[in-house]
Simulated scan of single mutants.
Amino acid sequence: MTEEKSSESFNLFKFLGDVKAELKKVTWPTKKELVTYTGVTGIAVVIVCALVWICDTIFARLFQLILR
């Protein structure tokens, strides 16, 4: 299977202009929202790490019991 090439070539300046236009459409968070989102993310990471540690400990002890 062959793919047909686009008749238009890549234009870096047009691409960067389009990126700039799209970034102007973004609704950026306020400082308060950013701090809140960062805190929530940090708490979620700590919870997931604790769950993984608990599961790892349980499985390690189970395997120790099985292999004895």
Rank of each mutant, 00 (worst) to 15 (best):
V35T: 12
L65R: 10
V52E: 00
E33Y: 05
G17I: 00
V48D: 01
G42I: 01
K20R: 14
P29C: 07
K25N: 11
T57A: 11
K24I: 10
V26E: 12
T2S: 10
I47S: 01
F10V: 08
V52R: 05
K14P: 00
L23D: 03
K5H: 05
L67I: 11
V45H: 06
T30F: 01
N11M: 08
T57Y: 15
E3A: 15
S7N: 12
Y37G: 00
Y37P: 00
R61D: 05
C49I: 13
T27M: 07
L12G: 04
V40H: 04
V45W: 09
G42W: 01
F63R: 15
E4S: 10
A44S: 15
L23M: 14
F59C: 07
F10S: 07
K5C: 03
V19I: 15
V19N: 06
K24G: 06
T27V: 15
V48A: 09
I58F: 14
L23E: 11
T30W: 02
I54E: 07
L62F: 13
I43S: 04
S9E: 09
T2Y: 12
R61A: 09
T57E: 02
T27E: 13
I47T: 06
I66C: 07
K24L: 11
E4H: 06
T36Q: 10
